[in-house]
Design a binder for these strands. Structure first.
Lengths: 351, 351
DNA sequence: GAGAGCCTGGAGAGCGCTCTCCGACCGCTG
DNA sequence: CAGCGGTCGGAGAGCGCTCTCCAGGCTCTC
């Protein structure tokens, strides 16, 4: 089943060669390849055979020179502008398995379409500029942007440079750019309802950073839902979405409210940290304290006990993000749109 | 400091336009941009200014059409050929933070050179073919390959297709392809020496899969080093480099050798699982059982207690891999080379 | 002071492809 | 049988860039 024509080295076979082999013109071969206009089926067959025999592979550069399309998409993972140098190498974000799911969803959508994303990290201002230049050089037709921090200037820069782009999560500032997001408030409500239904009355929460929309919405959504259940006051400690910040926040909460019996933690990584702190303080989970996380990352199942958590359909969201970008590339003038996904509660052992 | 020329939209400014603006020929502008041959400094300055005023951005497609270089590199994460469908989406491998470090090291080296890797996952045979086609289309000048399983057919396919490529870790079968690797035996010896120096006498080991060179070498290296210390017999359980396989292997070991007081686990993810099993069986770490991992992944510090582990210089290795690939691309005829890195023991609390 | 040789800038030929335009040929109708 | 619209293949002009070749002017040497 494997074709293996003799002169497979290098591939200097051009359209011209195929045309000669098939006894037709370059145009006809091009039409067959691109499926444009009607070409006599018999000739089509001849051409196809000629392509197979010659082992022809289209030259991507030549094609994109004339079509002004690269067929490539950039996947940009972006941090804030003014972060410290706590990462000697880029790519540390992949320590969060969440990104693996995003990447998986994107690749799952793009790969069947023959597109492979170009991976870029942009964690400082000068690199933002570099990324932008790269994009404007025509190295990609558009960008998928996953920001790790609020106040990421890149979305705005992208809009200004007219680079088609779609974000994962709503931007902190209102700008005309498409994005996908999860309904954070609904997710937080799911967690609140669950904790209450489990009979927890002294519930606290560990939020994400409050300058991030996700951190903000999960907190307010949780507080509102708890209020609806009659809990006017819910202790709260702010974390930074990292394992250690979750552990530290739990310590603080435990110090100030030793009697708490339930906690909603705004992401799984922090919940994992919270679990460590709880164990350290001799609390059993879920008997003494019920814990609900958010994200359903692989950290959720790696924990002991496995976390009850709010699951985003991350893969679906990432796929939709890619689909939206392709649409924007296809139809340049299109206004920005957004799509919000419903989260689901995944009940495991921690609550 | 930011330039923002008026017609920044789209960029239909060509070399020709810049040449006209600078009052020189296209060739001269090209020479200035590419730094080829001597150009009068005064003219260089004029040209540079013209580039800035016009907001010129070179067209990548046109350039690579003539240079036959894309300036792009593929980062291929490849699985075995016959794996089951346990992954609905590709990219699950990123759940292992190890890949984050690899990616970080690669990007750290490539980015200053203006190169961004194209991310590809290849977990089935048909996708191997697709990846190969993509590469041969001239979408990338070469490939960096990280295999998750032995018996990955891709290295051989790459060699056959004459695609410049460098592997992370030695291929299971001997083929003429460049790679970087860590000295697994030396790492295992580090672990053995440490356990012995800590006075452990009933030491066991959890190995990785034995069809992978890394799994194999770490095991034999450990056994040999222990033998050198006079320990002729070391109990051994095979794992699959995953959290759960480590936990299961530890259970088995504990069943058969309840008196063990030290264990070398062939990677951190499994060690994390082993820790869970040990705790479950009431063993204190490191008091009752000392645990040494391998990789120094972020799992190592997320554990309680933090793992004593063998650290590869993953980022350096990944960077070197990229450097080697660039060399191969630069000098096509070059024979395959390899570079082996020395691991380091990172002592934390678990042993 | 003149010839040789070097240095620098310009002209122009492609790289491989797409796509518009055009012409040939078909079947159909009046 | 002539005329007409429709279908389908071919010719050719670029897309924007690099790079070889060449010409002109300079310095240097004898």
């Amino acid at each position: 089943m494997r074709q293996d024509p003799s002169p497979s080295s290098g591939s200097s076979i051009t359209l011209e060669d195929v045309a000669r082999a098939a006894g037709v013109s370059r145009s006809t071969v091009s039409r067959v390849i691109n499926g444009i206009r009607n070409v006599d089926p018999a000739i089509q067959e001849t051409v196809r055979r000629a392509i197979a025999t010659t082992g022809y592979v289209p030259n991507h550069a030549a094609r994109s020179l004339v079509t002004r399309r690269t067929g490539a998409i950039a996947l940009v993972v972006s941090g804030a502008g003014g972060e410290g140098a706590d990462a000697p190498f880029p790519g540390q974000v992949f320590a969060d398995p969440f990104f693996g799911r995003v990447v998986g969803g994107i690749v799952g959508f793009l790969r069947p379409r023959g597109i492979h994303p170009i991976l870029m990290f942009a964690e400082s201002a000068e690199i933002h500029a570099q990324v932008l230049t790269h994009l404007r050089h025509g190295n990609a037709d558009g960008a998928l942007l996953v920001s790790t921090h609020a106040a990421d200037p890149l979305p705005r820069l992208l809009v200004e440079a007219r680079v088609p782009a779609v974000l994962f999560a709503r931007p902190a500032e209102p700008i005309p750019i498409s994005y996908v997001d999860v309904d954070h408030r609904a997710g937080a409500k799911l967690a609140a309802d669950h904790l209450v239904s489990r009979g927890r009355h002294r519930v606290a929460t560990i939020s994400g950073p409050l300058d991030v929309p996700a951190g903000q919405s999960r907190l307010t959504g949780f507080l509102d839902a708890m209020a609806a259940h009659g809990h006017a006051y819910v202790p709260h400690a702010e974390g930074g979405f990292t394992h250690h910040s979750g552990e530290a926040a739990m310590e603080r909460l435990l110090d100030e409210h030793p009697g708490l019996d339930g906690v909603f933690v705004a992401n799984d990584l922090m919940a994992q940290g919270a679990l460590v702190a709880l164990r350290h303080h001799g609390r059993r989970v879920p008997e003494d304290v019920a814990v609900v996380g958010f994200d359903d990352s692989s950290a959720a199942t790696a924990c002991r006990p496995p976390l009850t958590t709010v699951r985003h359909p991350v893969e679906d969201m990432a796929g939709e993000m890619a689909r939206m970008l392709l649409t924007h590339i296809e139809q340049p003038g299109r206004p920005a749109t957004s799509k919000i996904f419903d989260p689901v509660l995944v009940v495991r052992d921690s609550a």
